[in-house]
Design a binder for these strands. Structure first.
Lengths: 240, 240
DNA sequence: TGGGCGTTGTGACCGCAGTCACATTGGCCT
DNA sequence: AGGCCAATGTGACTGCGGTCACAACGCCCA
């Protein structure tokens, strides 16, 4: 088995151990078999670009391993990170289904393993099986739901502090750390990138994090953040 | 035929003249027939609430006539208008498919005619017909696409002027007026509501519109806006 | 026709955060 | 160890736009 970029490749979706947890991977065996036949398994290094905004949709990308940064950009070069996609997620789905250009740019943050399916193959696959089609509809609903939350966080909060607090809480929740008394989160993004996620400037992020540390709400150990006062953070997130 | 709120009710989707233009209404006759059997046609007055954010999904609402304001709100009461939905659009689709609560609140701006389908009926309808299911996936993609644009407009522009200009241009484009030398748009929202669409304050909208009039980019005739210098408006929308 | 209320217009003030400029740190590669 | 570059930290300045407070319409209806 070839292992580029220090990963082991999962060759077969039928035997993939992660399958049960993933919405899209969890298909009836027959469907999975035909998925097997149209998918291309590929590996990407860190920093690779899967597709770019406004490009004609070539097909879908299912993340098996690694995480992928999704961003939109303005003509002036300003960038906004929409989300960090994790294994099991399907990228380029809505573009592939609707035929419109990709809405976002997808760039790997780690070495990634990805299953690619060409648009025509995928559409055939869809139209062949109601169950698959329904799964896709569910995935799309999920995505829509996420983007709505994004809008809510972006549009309904005035201060940058509020947005940062929301982001940190979201991260702790995603890692299942929120139940702990002192949740930890591993920072995988630079201040610059965090700034792009909440629509503010790099300096502001630095300053806000420093503030949180000063007030003993946060605590940094290397690139790991320790949340020492989750209640206070929630306070900030919902303030005003 | 009953005509509440001064509308004529379209009783039958099979004979609806608007059918061909609408993505979701344009189904094969057999599917349309079974849709007929599960839909409830209802009429709402202006200002009626179809559903509210965070409510358990009861089903979908297809707009036949009138327009509907979709908004999200924060616990503090701050409101953001996500979009104005027009006839042919399906509301509550993603919530109904995924089973998650409605993401937005839907409130009629006019007297509206709406086809409602209960969640269980709709899911059965979906799973019975790949074509229907695929249409739904396309609709969801469409919605996702729109929300992404929303995020782009919200997150990637710094000045309120930029966002307002974008909104005005979008409206002229939607009305098919953008080709004319002096496009007109009928203002159906108050300054307050416009402010909620672009995430700013009512006063700022008033001031910005006044500025545009002063610079002879805009011109108001009652509640109709005349765009006298579309190029300049585009300039503002893409500035910086 | 005159209230009455929702909408629009305008001034004054001020705080958040963007921007620029530079110092400092830390990690990585040779 | 040393050097290099990206990432982080910090101060000073400034302007956009939020907020408050009122004035002036404009429209509907009794």
């Amino acid at each position: 088995m070839i292992s580029p970029y220090g990963m082991e490749i999962v060759e077969n979706c039928l035997t993939c151990k992660l399958r049960a947890e993933r919405l899209f991977c969890d298909l009836p065996p027959a469907a999975l078999q035909s998925f097997e036949e149209i998918k291309f398994t590929t590996a990407y290094p860190e920093g690779a670009t899967l597709f770019v905004e406004r490009q004609e949709p070539r097909g879908i990308f299912v993340i098996c391993r690694g995480s992928v940064k999704l961003s939109v950009s303005a003509p002036n070069g300003k960038v906004m990170i929409v989300k960090i996609a994790e294994p099991g997620e399907v990228l380029g789905l809505s573009a592939t289904v609707s035929g419109r250009p990709y809405e976002v740019t997808a760039e790997t943050l780690d070495p990634c393993q990805v299953n690619f399916v060409k648009r025509e193959d995928f559409l055939r696959f869809l139209k062949n099986d109601v169950q698959v089609c329904f799964k896709v509809a569910q995935q799309l609903s999920e995505k829509y739901h996420n983007v709505c939350n994004e809008i809510r966080a972006l549009g309904l909060s005035h201060s940058a502090a509020e947005k940062l607090a929301k982001l940190l809480l979201e991260w702790t929740a995603k890692n299942g750390e929120s139940a702990k008394t002192e949740p930890r989160i591993k920072l995988r993004l630079t201040h610059e990138e965090i700034a792009q996620m909440i629509g503010t400037s790099r300096e502001t992020v630095t300053r806000l994090l420093a503030d949180l540390k000063k007030h003993e709400i946060l605590n940094a150990r290397g690139s790991t953040l320790v949340i020492r006062n989750q209640a206070a953070l929630r306070e900030i997130a919902n303030s005003n």
